[in-house]
Design a protein around this nucleic acid. Structure first.
Lengths: 218, 218
DNA sequence: GCCGAGGCGGACCGAATAGTCCAATACAGC
DNA sequence: GCTGTATTGGACTATTCGGTCCGCCTCGGC
């Protein structure tokens, strides 16, 4: 412990605005490239070029590639949660869930299902390689599911959702349908399976509504 | 076209039993290693060592690493379909579906959800990299779903499943729940989300039975 | 305007890894 | 057995890629 203090006398290194901006640029480039090519298939030189930086900057801001990847996991997780929070924190009705579903489908249809979910693809690639990355991803998934289950709880409190419904399990099922939908859509280059999967999960939730409606999902 | 014929006068090269066995050994080793470490993170030297072969054999049987990966995609696909055919071709009842679910969960629980589905992990890693691999995987998924939907059709024909049920969509939803369940289980090192996801899909199918039963899923 | 630390450019290095080559061996068909 | 081809061992090569290094630049605080 004392060794570390000697080696790094100041616990937090001073960092300037310029430094922060560079670090951000690196993460942004890594995020973009690794979403398309995958983590392992993206090289540091790719990132260096795309971010208009240099090797020394990469290693100034990150200890090694693994650290960069771990930082990317958190970065991407924060982005997803920010986006999802915007779409879910006011969720109070079933039609709100349908709108949320439609937004995800539409976003994914822009690239014909390619690339899939930024979190899901990293999860399968990193979970068996990097324990820290895995647990970080797992936490992000849990937070994402909580955004959903919180909304379901609100629906339960307001009497829309039956009391024998289990919001946590429903959220987990919906998340699995979403991730599986992303995967099948990516493999088939067709968003139809993603729609089918999400509709199945929504139908399942609908079956727990107190006033079931006969309308179709969308 | 004629160039190819000149370069390879005999369309099919003669191949001996020993050659076939070696090729099989290479694929078997690649299958094992790449399931655990992922495709990109597995080197040819790893495979050479694990399969007790030599570099020249790898390149004698496969043009390059990409070819080997493509062969592995088909190899693994055939394995999965063979296994699934055994479990699904006699599917005629809802309880058969539950048994199928339990077998998958049990198999995956043996390694705490690690590694996930051999097809799903390859799908996310290769779909954006190798068009041939992607389409091959997509075909395998389609064949797998067909095994399920064929069973559902049989249930429909025998009057167990309502006629307004869509076996193809139900099969797609079930497959998405399975793949999403694998993914979440892998990320959390806990098979619970996989169980929840599969149970959701089974409940959804159950809602289309002609004689709904009050029993729990298992 | 001087000083010191943060920030930076990019050449360079070494290990890892895909891929090549050739001589030696095993085997199928005659 | 003989012959040609399939098969094999393993050293070798070329290249990619993560990581290092060192001198220079920039900028905030004094």
């Amino acid at each position: 412990m004392s060794d570390e203090q000697v080696a790094a006398p100041t616990n937090r290194r001073r960092i300037s605005q310029r430094g922060i901006a560079t670090r951000e640029r690196i993460l942004e480039a890594a995020n973009r490239l690794m979403l398309v090519r995958g983590v392992n298939a993206t090289t540091l030189d790719d990132i260096r070029e795309a971010s208009q930086t240099s090797k020394s900057q990469l290693y100034h801001h990150f200890a090694d590639k693994q650290e960069l990847v771990r930082a990317l996991v958190k970065y991407r997780g924060a982005l997803v949660l920010q986006r999802e929070r915007a779409g879910l924190e006011r969720l109070r009705s079933f039609s709100g869930l349908v709108r949320w579903r439609n937004a995800l489908v539409q976003a994914n249809s822009l690239n014909n299902g390619k690339y899939g979910c930024g979190l899901g693809s990293m999860a399968l690639e990193l979970s068996d390689q990097d324990e820290q990355a895995r647990s970080s991803l797992s936490e992000t998934f849990a937070a994402w599911e909580k955004l959903i289950s919180d909304g379901l709880h609100r629906m339960q409190d307001s009497g829309l959702l039956r009391h024998d419904a289990d919001p946590e399990k429903l959220a987990t099922g919906l998340m699995a349908a979403l991730q599986g939908g992303y995967l099948l859509a990516n493999a088939s280059h067709d968003i139809a399976p993603m729609e089918v999967a999400l509709d199945m999960a929504l139908e399942h939730i609908k079956s727990f509504l107190t006033q079931p409606s006969g309308e179709p999902t969308r």
